[in-house]
């Protein structure tokens, strides 16, 4: 679902770029907070730095947990990138591929998951010309915000009432449909094509692709947890 350059009006592209930067900056701050801890001031005193000099500037250092978490983010990014390459056939000469947003947020939590999906999208656009440059913000909003961050809360909410695998599947299906809706609105509002026609065509296809997304996401979540082993709590 990577929008190429040219599909969107530059005004919409720039607006989406701003929104994406805001989402990523917030996510990055959240993740940084979780992977670091305030350095105890005695540690600085011990290496000869006066505690007084540190007033107002609390240094944060990477924790052991944080280090593991970042390694895990790398593994999830690699897996999402790989899985996105696997286009599977659906009806009418069309294919679909995983977005992997729900996969990332279920394994990593909402904010680390968003960063992973955004990173994969940036790598795809820069190195593989998959997805445009000016529209990168729109792609990040579609697939990392509507495809990962929001469905995380669907997953977390549903998990309290239904088995986890079912909530993962439901969130994954929603993620594809929401991303498709977002992309349709961007294309429609850009005046590229009539909004109604884009919406109905995109929905029709992605309702089906979402089913595959759900099945693949559930399978990969359990596979990842099994292979990642004891460090699952990271």
């Amino acid at each position: 679902m990577h929008i190429p350059d040219g599909f969107l009006d530059p005004k919409i592209s720039i607006g989406m770029l701003g929104a994406a930067v805001a989402v990523l900056a917030y996510s990055m701050a959240k993740v940084k907070e979780s992977v670091t801890a305030l350095a105890p001031q005695e540690a600085f005193a011990a290496v000869g730095k006066g505690v007084k000099n540190l007033a107002g500037q609390s240094r944060r250092i990477l924790t052991k947990f944080g280090e593991q978490k970042i390694y895990k983010m790398g593994m999830v990014a690699a897996l999402v990138f790989a899985a996105q390459m696997f286009n599977f056939p659906i009806a009418y000469g069309t294919s679909g591929h995983l977005i992997g947003g729900v996969l990332a947020v279920v394994l990593l939590g909402p904010f680390a998951g968003v960063l992973v999906i955004a990173a994969v999208l940036v790598v795809q656009a820069l190195f593989f010309a998959d997805g445009g440059l000016l529209v990168m913000g729109a792609n990040i909003i579609n697939m990392a915000f509507f495809g990962a961050l929001l469905p995380y809360y669907i997953y977390a909410g549903l998990k309290r009432f239904i088995p986890e695998w079912l909530s993962i599947g439901a969130a994954a299906w929603c993620s594809v449909v929401m991303a498709a809706l977002a992309a349709s609105f961007e294309i429609g509002l850009s005046g590229t094509f009539a909004l109604g026609a884009v919406l109905s065509s995109m929905l029709k296809v992605h309702i089906v692709i979402g089913i595959a997304e759900a099945a693949i996401t559930v399978a990969l979540v359990y596979m990842f947890r099994k292979l990642f082993g004891a460090k699952e709590k990271v």
């Binding site: 679902m1 599909f7 286009n87 599977f88 069309t94 094509f193 995109m202 296809v205 692709i209």
Partner: peptide, 23 residues
Amino acid sequence: ASAHPDGLEKVAEHLGFMDKGIE
């Protein structure tokens, strides 16, 4: 992997705005 166009590409082809995309 399937070589068919993905969901968005198919819609763009079907509705006829694929050529607006910049390669």
